[in-house]
Computed example of a mutant assay.
Amino acid sequence: MITFSTDISKIEKERVYRFLSEVSGRLEGLPPQALETVLNNSICFGAYLPSGEQVAFARVITDKLTFAYLCDLFVFEEHRGKGLSKQLLEEVLSHPDVKEVQSIGLATPDAHDLYSQYGFIRVDPSERLMVRFNKRKPST
C-alpha cells in the first residue's frame, strides 16, 4: 500500500535531486543545496512504500487562495506503470492548500492525457502549458 506525505524530512533528497538535475533538467547546473530552497518554498508530496522507500514526488507553489503551480510530478522509473502518477495527482489536488485555489497551472511536454483527465486544459500555442479552474466559492 502506498502512503503519501508532505513531510519534507521523509524525502529521499539525493534521489529527487538526481532526477530533477539529470532527468527533468529543472535543477541542472545547480548544486544539491538548491533542492533545499525548492523544498522549503513549496508544498512537497512524496509517495512511499511500506518500507519507506520513496516512489514518487510532486510539488506545488501556491498563495493558497488564487493560484497554484504544479510542477515536478514524477514517478521513479522502476515504479512506473502502476497508476502512481494518478494517485499522486489525486493526493495533490485534494490537499487543503490546493483544492480551493481558483486556478492551478502546470507545464508538461508529454503528459497532456493524464492531466486532461483531471480537468486541465491547454492554454497556449506551445501546447506545454495547461490550467485547471476550480469553482469559486460564493461569498458569504
Rank of each mutant, 00 (worst) to 15 (best):
H112A: 15
T37Q: 08
T37D: 07
L39C: 06
Y115S: 14
D7F: 09
D97R: 08
A34Q: 03
K86H: 12
H79Y: 15
P138I: 07
A47N: 08
I121C: 03
L88N: 09
D113N: 14
D124E: 15
L70Q: 12
V131P: 00
P125Q: 11
K64F: 03
F67M: 08
K82A: 08
K137D: 07
S103N: 14
S94P: 00
V60N: 10
C44F: 09
T3L: 00
L89C: 14
T140A: 12
R128V: 12
S51R: 06
L129H: 11
L70H: 11
I2E: 00
K64T: 14
E12I: 00
L70W: 07
R80E: 07
P109I: 11
K135S: 10
S5D: 05
V23H: 02
V101Y: 11
L88V: 15
T6M: 02
R15G: 01
T6K: 02
F19K: 00
P109W: 11
K135R: 13
R18Q: 09
E91M: 10
L73D: 09
V55F: 06
R128Q: 13
G46V: 04
L84G: 06
L20M: 13
V23D: 09
E91N: 14
E100A: 13
Q33C: 01
E78F: 09
G25F: 02
E90T: 14
N41V: 03
G52D: 10
P109Q: 12
H112N: 14
N134W: 08
S24A: 08
V16F: 01
R136G: 06
S42R: 10
S116E: 15
P31M: 02
S103W: 00
F120G: 15
E12V: 00
E127K: 13
E127I: 04
I11F: 06
S85Q: 04
R128H: 11
P32H: 01
A68D: 07
R136C: 05
S51D: 07
L30K: 06
I61L: 12
G83N: 12
M1I: 08
L20E: 05
M130K: 08
F57L: 04
G46M: 07
R136K: 13
L89S: 11
K13A: 07
G52A: 03
G52T: 00
E91C: 15
V101D: 14
L39S: 02
T3H: 04
T108Y: 10
E127L: 12
I104Q: 15
C44W: 10
T140P: 13
